[in-house]
Design a protein around this nucleic acid. Structure first.
Length: 324
RNA sequence: CCGGAGGUGGCAGAGUGGCCAAUUGCAUCAGACUGUAAAUCUGACGGGAUUUCCCUUCGAAGGUUCGAAUCCUUCCCUCCGGA
């Protein structure tokens, strides 16, 4: 019983993941499943880079786009006013992956949200513990100190399991308390293995030397602005997306909230956003660095595209590498 | 040329005799991450030795003082106003 194959393409922003995925999809008759925490939102198009770098023919469906003849899933699955979480992603994307497999096509998971990728590919236990809006509402009123004290008294073990950084992170402490409240007796060390090793996976990682990456980010932002990024932001806001929500959405949208409210000049908007995206790319690299089994490719090497194709080919058609 | 304000670590900006290697924010660097993850959070951030140690810093040079980024003198530079 061979496990089904699943291709993963990840890496920091602005490395051309979508472009690569699209061309691989064509070659290996695949479909893309986006793993991007912001592309799931309807209307966030230019800022989230839903379109690839080159001109393609696009058809928009419900919950997917079709570009250049290949389907891209997990685009436009929810209204940006609503909160979408890993839980939602894992559920929905998981179904899509199964469906793509069922139809005999190669699922290609492509995206920069490491947490989503990890959730989809490996799953994790606490995903089953639901959010408790009432509890959250209460806890949100507390200061960091109070949250810390609360968790410590509720469950010293849980508290001790947090790392130094999370012990000072209100959001994480809050979730820990939430978990303790719903499963007070569950031992923190009890782990449910969900699906790891369910698929035969090949992970491709795209990188570039940092100066190059940053320059690509800067140029890409400029071109997004030309494509109407600001108008997109204005439009969303006019349609009722609050500035506060835009802030939460981060990067281009967060900065556009400041631009629209007049806090920033156009020039400040651009330069500050560029550094925000640099920082984001760095965080992505930090995340992916410790992810195992990734085959990394430097996109500044001329032949990387070809090398990726060869690798995918030998993985997808094992024992068939003598063909020409 | 006169009057006024000011020159602080990559930037912004506190400090106005000892508690100052110098608050804070930003940037930078490193990192965390099990339902907000483009979010949230942590650490480092003059140099060196590395538990309370040393060295070089607050425009420059002198001076006062036990002790100065903080007071005095001169010089250099910037900004505003008047000539």
């Amino acid at each position: 019983m061979d496990k089904h194959k699943l291709l993963v393409i990840l890496g920091p922003t602005a490395t051309g993941k979508t472009d690569l995925a699209l061309s691989l999809a064509k070659k290996f008759s695949g479909e893309l499943i986006s793993a991007d925490s912001r592309q799931v939102y309807k209307g966030l198009d230019i800022g989230t880079g839903k379109l690839p770098g080159r001109e393609v023919e696009v058809k928009r469906g419900d919950g997917f786009w079709e570009m250049d003849g290949t389907k891209v899933w997990m685009y436009d699955v929810v209204n940006p006013k609503q909160q979408f979480t890993v839980k939602d992603y894992v559920l929905q994307a998981g179904k899509i992956v199964e469906d793509v497999i069922k139809r005999g096509r190669l699922p290609i998971v492509v995206g920069g949200t490491g947490f989503y990728v990890k959730g989809l590919l490996e799953g994790f236990a606490s995903l089953d513990i639901p959010m408790d809006e009432n509890l959250r509402g209460e806890l949100q009123k507390l200061s960091l100190k109070e949250l810390q004290q609360k968790l410590q008294s509720l469950s010293p073990t849980k508290w001790a399991s947090l790392n130094q950084s999370d012990k000072k992170n209100p959001r994480r402490i809050l979730r820990s308390i939430e978990i303790i409240y719903t499963y007070p007796y569950r031992k923190t060390n009890k782990k449910l293995k969900i699906k790891s090793k369910k698929w035969n996976m090949l992970k491709i990682g795209l990188t570039a030397p940092r100066p190059v990456l940053y320059e690509r980010i800067d140029l890409r932002l400029l071109s997004r602005i030309q494509q109407g990024l600001i108008e997109e932001g204005e439009n969303l806001h006019e349609k009722g997306l609050s500035l506060q929500r835009m802030k939460e959405l981060g990067l281009e949208y967060g900065m556009m909230a400041d631009l629209l409210s007049g806090v920033l000049s156009n020039e400040q908007f651009t330069t500050q956003l560029q550094t925000k995206i640099h920082q984001y790319a760095k965080r992505q690299m930090t995340w992916f660095q410790k992810e195992p089994d990734i085959h990394w490719f430097d996109i500044t090497t001329l032949t990387y595209h070809e090398k990726v194709e060869n690798l995918v080919d030998s993985w997808y058609y094992p024992g068939d590498d003598k063909k020409d």
